[in-house]
Simulated scan of single mutants.
Amino acid sequence: MTDRELAVTAWESLFRAQVGVIRVLAAEFPTRTMSLNEYDVLFNLSLQPGNRARLRDINQLVLLSQPSVSRLIDRLVARGLVSKHPDPTDRRGTIVAITDAGFAQYRDVARLHMDAITELMGAALSDDELRQLAHLTSKLRPTHEAHPVPVAD
């Protein structure tokens, strides 16, 4: 196999595995009160300083198109899970912050979601394989990414 064929085969395998895992997790998401995409926004906000971020930065953190993120944020605002405010340093920008109610709901769902991830990943891979997978995939992530995956020994 050539270097090119090997790289393409590895990419396809990684991509298909990721899609398969996401499909299972989305189908079995632990709550009907929050979608996996809504959870992703709340998860990313929970990692930001002050649990808040500019809307344009959220667009970079989640795997949705900009119009989809805007609509999703509006739904979260309507449900009281996040709030939107003008950016005091740039009035053209919008700050999105997770509310106390949003953080509480995120935290409850996160526990269940982590259990589902642990069950799915742990059934397929050993602890050593999970560490190796985390290490290998972290090498593929952009170096400017704000939250690298921690790899425990």
Rank of each mutant, 00 (worst) to 15 (best):
T33E: 15
R16G: 02
T99F: 08
A110N: 10
H144T: 14
G102D: 07
E129T: 05
E129C: 00
P150M: 08
R141L: 09
Q66Y: 05
T2C: 09
E119T: 15
R56H: 09
E129F: 00
R131C: 05
H147F: 15
R92D: 12
L14Q: 10
D40M: 06
L120D: 06
Q132L: 12
A152F: 06
W11L: 15
V149W: 09
L63R: 04
F103C: 04
S46D: 11
R79C: 00
T143K: 13
E5Y: 09
I22R: 14
T89L: 14
M121Y: 06
V109A: 10
R107N: 09
S13F: 13
I95T: 06
L130V: 13
A123L: 07
L130A: 02
S35Y: 04
S83R: 14
P150S: 11
M114T: 08
P88G: 07
V82N: 00
F29G: 09
D153W: 06
S126A: 05
T94Y: 04
V62Q: 01
S70Y: 02
R23W: 04
A123H: 11
R32Q: 15
T31P: 09
T2Q: 07
R79L: 06
M121D: 04
P49V: 07
D57W: 01
E38K: 00
R16C: 06
I58A: 00
T33C: 05
V77M: 08
Q48A: 13
A110Q: 13
F29Q: 11
V96T: 03
S138R: 13
A116L: 15
G20A: 07
Q48N: 09
E28F: 07
A17N: 09
D108L: 11
E12V: 10
V8M: 14
V24R: 15
T143P: 01
R111L: 15
M34N: 02
I73D: 02
L25Q: 09
H144L: 04
E12P: 00
V41Q: 01
L14G: 06
A110E: 13
T99D: 06
L45V: 10
A17G: 08
Q48M: 12
R107P: 04
A101F: 08
D87Q: 07
I95P: 01
F29L: 13
D90Q: 08
V109K: 00
R75N: 13
A104Q: 10
A53G: 04
Y106V: 00
D74L: 08
L45H: 04
D108R: 11
S46K: 07
L14I: 13
G20S: 09
I117G: 00
L81W: 12
E119S: 15
A124D: 04
D87C: 05
D87I: 05
T2M: 08
T143W: 06
L81F: 10
V24Y: 14
V149D: 02
H147R: 10
A104Y: 03
H144C: 01
A146G: 03
V69S: 01
H147N: 06
T99A: 06
P30H: 08
L120E: 11
Q132S: 13
V62H: 01
Q132F: 04
R111H: 14
R56D: 13
V69H: 01
D115P: 00
P67I: 03
H135N: 09
Y39H: 08
N37L: 03
H85F: 05
E12L: 14
A123P: 02
A124Y: 05
R52N: 03
V21H: 03
I95W: 04
S68M: 02
A53T: 01
V96N: 02
